[in-house]
């Protein structure tokens, strides 16, 4: 149990490529933080720097009160769950769980107690004597989490732990991770590129782009008030419509706005609406329907009930106060 503080952390690879720059985050004890961003945004690098698997080029990382920049991963009091599970293939599940504790010279009885406890929490009791190769993907993932739990670390680090699972299992495991974290109250940092996973798991989201923080906030804050066009386009599914102001000249918005963002679910069909859209394609999702079209040369997506009337041209209105305005050059939010 500990807080984690990143202070202007940066990573420059030999050769001068900058992967991460100027990242400062204060993570409270017991908080669930999700680092989210597209591939190549530096989120994994950042996590690996916290874990100690990558050296820290700039700034300081603190776990609790201790600066850990030059501390070996094993001595940082963290546990990591990897995307491909990274279980030791030649050891039984029990030995996989116990290995880290054995290296730490934990007494035999204590190891047995913790392994048994983790096995109960994760329901992997029946598999304790099997080899990882005899387990399914979901079971392996549980063992990987078990290996983290038995360590009773100050923080869990998750590196896209659900990416190798199929869609359905991903949803159930997501929930399990959330419940587990809530129960154990261990500070957790979770890396994912899946914005839905990020939204559902996080106490606070950290949206990263090109190695820099775009926004930090609770999922709802980020969803309701995206700080930049990047965050606006990345968080939320279907993605927010980002249209140039010139495409809808008659909308009453502030003069300095360059880009207007409207979420597809904030648009609705109205006979006297201010926006006219030419329909190009329709996607049926069951509960709702996504209508893709264009207006003034810009793409636009509308989410509507699946029983709403359709035609080639639709007039649309938007929910009051649902417009997001962004600066034309910096792309930052204007309030």
């Amino acid at each position: 149990m500990a807080s984690i503080t990143l202070d202007t952390v940066g990573k420059i690879y030999p050769g001068g490529t900058r992967a991460v720059g100027d990242v400062s985050i204060d993570i409270a004890d017991g908080e669930f933080i999700v680092l989210v961003g597209p591939s190549g945004c530096g989120k994994s690098t950042l996590l690996r720097m916290i874990a100690g698997l990558e050296s820290i080029s700039e700034g300081t990382v603190r776990i609790g009160d201790r600066v850990v920049n030059d501390v070996e991963p094993a001595d940082r009091d963290i546990a990591m769950v990897f995307q491909n599970y990274a279980l030791y293939p030649h050891m039984s599940v029990r030995d996989n769980l116990a290995y880290g504790l054995k290296n730490r010279r934990t007494p035999r009885a204590e190891i047995d107690r913790r392994v048994a406890e983790a096995a109960v929490i994760l329901q992997i009791g029946p598999y304790l004597d099997r080899k990882p190769r005899a387990l399914s993907g979901g079971q392996r993932q549980r063992v990987a989490m078990g290996r983290a739990i038995v360590r009773e670390p100050a923080a869990f680090l998750f590196d896209e732990p659900l990416s190798n699972l199929d869609a359905k299992l991903r949803v159930t495991m997501r929930l399990e991770i959330k419940e587990l974290q809530r129960r154990l109250r261990t500070t957790s940092i979770y890396v994912t590129h899946d914005q839905l996973e990020a939204m559902t798991l996080a106490d606070r989201l950290v949206v990263l782009n090109a190695g820099r923080i775009e926004q930090i906030g609770t999922p709802l804050e980020v969803y309701r008030k995206p700080a930049s066009t990047f965050v606006a386009g990345f968080i939320g599914s279907p993605a927010m419509n980002l249209i140039s102001r010139r495409a809808v000249p008659h909308l009453p918005v502030a003069a300095q706005a360059g880009t207007i963002g409207i979420r597809p679910e904030d648009l609705s069909v109205a006979p006297d609406g201010p926006i006219e859209m030419e329909v190009l394609a329709v996607e049926e999702l069951g509960a709702q329907r996504l209508v893709h079209g264009q207006t003034g040369g810009e793409r636009l997506t509308v989410a509507m009930p699946s029983d709403a009337p359709l035609s080639d041209r639709l007039r649309l209105s938007y929910r009051l106060g649902s417009l997001h305005l962004f600066h034309p050059e910096t792309g930052r939010r204007i309030d």
Binding site: A51, G52, M80, F82, Q83, A86
Partner: peptide, 12 residues
């Protein structure tokens, strides 16, 4: 590599 890293974190 993850196996090596997991071992490092496990204190090997």
């Amino acid at each position: 590599d993850e196996l090596t890293e997991a071992a490092r974190i496990d204190g090997a």
